[in-house]
């Protein structure tokens, strides 16, 4: 079984992002970038399945500018076997990402595609589902547990009401929740070895995919600052206000 893991390079989750003054986006110069956190869970799960002898190869793929390669290197350092970097500059929407991944899937013919459930930059939560639709494959989103059975996966999903378990036939897409596992650290010798693992470079433009933007980003702004309200003088007044003015109790 072959597993393709899609990883994305995003602003590190500890960095306090800043909005550009002209409203055209977020400042990313000299900002620490990392792999999208749930994508690390996706890689970890794929590597675990491989270590359990149920997969022969784990391939990490990323789509983005030159430096996006770092995320593939990181996946290689924690156990992926080889990497693919599809080069494209600028913002690409999930639909275009899904279409590029579709081409990669057609070329690589994996049995499973894993990725994080959502990227922490655009917070779209679309790519995995879109890829499933394009491929007409089963999808198991927000996975917190994956069991590999013969030609099938049993996946526990985190849903609003609690947990849901589905069984999906391979080939399939799984999007991973942070609760799925605890990603391992890349050890120093493995980082060294990862430097020698191959990363295939593709150009998005060569794949024959329409990546043009369908959504115009008009402006990006900081969240509105909340205005201070009033001070109440007693608990009784507070409860009255909550009941009659704010109508929340």
């Amino acid at each position: 079984m072959k597993i393709l893991v899609a990883v994305k390079r995003v602003v590190d989750y500890n960095v306090q992002i800043r909005v550009k003054e002209d409203g055209s986006g977020i400042i990313t110069d000299n900002v620490k970038m990392s792999t999208n956190p749930p994508d690390d869970n996706a890689t970890e799960e794929a590597v675990k399945i491989k270590e359990a002898g149920k997969s022969k190869e784990v391939v990490a793929v990323t789509i983005g500018e030159e430096k996006a390669q770092e995320t593939v290197r990181k996946a290689l350092a924690v156990g992926a076997d080889r990497g693919i970097h599809v080069k494209i500059d600028g913002i690409i929407e999930p639909l275009a990402v899904a279409k590029i991944l579709q081409k990669v899937v057609e070329k690589e013919k994996p049995d499973l595609v894993f990725m994080g459930k959502q990227a922490i930059d655009d917070d779209c939560n679309q790519t995995g589902q879109m890829l499933s639709a394009l491929l007409n494959w089963p999808q198991a989103t927000f996975a917190s547990k994956i069991e590999v059975k013969d030609k099938k996966l049993e996946v526990t999903r985190e849903i609003d009401e609690g947990l849901e378990t589905v069984e999906i036939n391979i080939p399939a897409i799984v999007t991973c929740d942070l609760r799925l596992n605890e990603p391992r650290y890349a050890s120093l010798p493995n980082i060294m070895k990862a430097k020698k693992k191959p990363i295939e470079q593709l150009n998005a433009s060569d794949l024959g995919v329409d990546t043009s933007s369908r959504i115009e980003q008009i402006k990006v702004e900081e969240p509105p600052k909340r205005k201070a309200g009033i001070k109440v003088s007693s608990v009784a007044e507070l409860v009255q206000k909550l009941k009659n003015e704010a109508k929340v109790i």
Binding site: V11, Q16, I17, V19, I26, I120, D121, D122, D123, Q217, I218, K219, V220, E221, E222, P223
Partner: peptide
């Protein structure tokens, strides 16, 4: 976007 740290129109 960015967990509510920015808003995009």
């Amino acid at each position: 976007i960015y967990a509510g740290n920015a808003f995009a129109t």
